[in-house]
Design a protein around this nucleic acid. Structure first.
Lengths: 143, 143
DNA sequence: CTAGAATAGTCAGATATTCTGACCAGATGT
DNA sequence: ACATCTGGTCAGAATATCTGACTATTCTAG
């Protein structure tokens, strides 16, 4: 096994989890969502998110974000509701079906983390997670 | 700051590094490569890689990989040479210009890892890296 | 050694994703 | 109240990606 750089190692692990979640959801019947739609969907906060927020957090243009939200609306996973705090804005919130998906995704995600914890041992896994949280301070402009 | 799941934390860090490298290369004059091309390019091994290998490692179809390699050839970053071991196959190898880019990218990547190490402290950073390498055993089908 | 299966890669055509530029309506600051 | 900023959309183009079909070469089991 070659010596890969650290960011790439992180990407490998991330993508593994993403694949597992995507495939798990498809197996559970949620097979009409594409990866791009799913990535955006995963960014929606519980209270709902604005299109602009989603665009920033997923690092796409707001046009792209809007386009993907349209499709999620059509598929019945989210709804657009007015944002009471700003008449220009609308909040993208998960529908009932969307909440089901979120729950299912969280379930799978939890299984993956459990697998990782089992593989590394609780001590190392906790340290890893803690280090990733700390790293976010220098890697996430949205903190 | 909310509690993000571990895979997403990894993605955030990865993308930060990817952005920095992409922007750094653009600033150094390599501004004609797209992200998709760059991602594929980053997978090319020193000895050269086959299109099929690149496709597998980047998780795209071989058609897509071939399409991106075509563009990299046209931009002068890689060449296709016959694979002496298999007359069906051709190896994608970096050109002289491609080697320059690789070197520049490695340079930036190193600076990022140095920054991370400085932020976490050598002890935690080393532990993080070591954990990521170990994690690869359960997340990378290509190990 | 040879037929059949597998592998490396390409061509063609369709779909999905993403971008740039222009624009509107509501909010904010002086 | 005027200019500016912000949230979002519309239109059109470029990029990336896929599925399906195909050729050429290699591998494998008789």
């Amino acid at each position: 096994m070659e010596e890969l750089n650290t960011p790439l190692l992180m990407f490998i692990a991330y993508r593994h989890a993403e694949n597992a979640i995507f495939e798990g959801l498809a197996a559970a019947g949620y097979d009409d969502v594409t990866l791009a739609q799913g990535r955006l969907f995963a960014r929606i906060r519980d209270e709902g998110s604005r299109v602009t927020e989603l665009a920033e957090s997923a690092q796409v243009t707001k046009q792209t974000a809007g386009y993907l939200v349209d499709q999620l609306v059509r598929l019945g996973y989210v709804e657009r509701v007015p944002d009471p705090r700003d008449a220009r804005a609308r909040l993208v919130v998960p529908s009932a079906k969307g909440e089901e998906v979120r729950e299912a995704a969280r379930e799978i995600e939890k299984r993956i983390e459990d697998q990782w914890r089992a593989h590394l041992g609780t001590r190392r896994y906790t340290a890893l997670r803690e280090a990733m949280v700390a790293l976010r301070e220098v890697t996430d402009p949205w903190v």
